[in-house]
Amino acid sequence: MADTKKLAIIASQGTLDWGYPPFILASTAAAMDMEAVIFFTFYGLPLLKKEIDAKVSPHCNPAMPMKMPFGSKDFQSINWPIPNAISGNVPGFDNMATMLMKETFKKKGVATIEQLRGMCQEFGVRFIACQMTMEVFGFEKEEFIDGVEYGGAATFLEYAADADISLFI
């Protein structure tokens, strides 16, 4: 295509649910012959770690459906309402919710975040890590995967100024 469309994404959240959209959109954009850049800042930075340890929490998140990845189809379609008193106080509740969501994704044939991140890199999506938040939160370059660029707001905006699609996630 004569003029290549450009996608610019800021990934600012690192939970399992918020970690998916940047990688899904960037990899698909690249598959559609677009250029794509993801700028990782604040809580989005851990998505660049070699091992992604993203979790999800139903605590104070009433819109999050808790699904069981096993049992009959009817059982699996139940949205389990979890009172905050339980999700906030039972030790390990987030780990369990994370495990259930990962299992449900797997059963539905959804890629893992690591898989999508790998495909982004394979398709030439550029990853930029925010240098400032790295220093604030004490992240080292050695913790991150290879192929990451480092920069600040101006680095992102220089690219985003010519972007056709800009998203803050």
Partner: peptide, 13 residues
């Protein structure tokens, strides 16, 4: 077969 969005598109590409 069995794969969900966006994998079919990525694999097709």
């Amino acid at each position: 077969e069995g794969l969900n969005c966006p994998l079919p598109i990525l694999k097709t590409k």
